[in-house]
Amino acid sequence: MKYLCLIYSDEQLLHTSPDSPKDPECFAYAEAIQASGRMLAAEPLQPVNTATTVRMRNGKVSITDGPFAETKEQLAGFYLIEASDLNEALQVAGGIPAARVGSVEVRPVRELNLA
């Protein structure tokens, strides 16, 4: 089963807290998950001040600066993994170094019903 692990963190704290992970640690963890065969994709994101939101309404595109919603914690990156069940997914999510300063939301991926 596929799970998306969404990493949220206060951007001000993500790289400045004493617990903040450095890039090599994040890279090493991603490598380890890759080696275990559970990795489908994982990427860190640029800060939300680079975000742009697009909406299509009545055939018209509207483009606005910033994320969809202003929140205390911002989306900082993600892991898309393959896991046998939620427990295994939670184990992977708990090991993501950024979980020490932020939080990781684990969501099962819905299979599209094409029948």
Binding site: L86, N87, P108
Partner: peptide, 14 residues
């Protein structure tokens, strides 16, 4: 059902 919480007794570690 949807998030697939496994029907099992956790391992010693957990």
């Amino acid at each position: 059902r949807e998030a697939k919480i496994p029907y099992q007794v956790p391992s010693r570690a957990e």
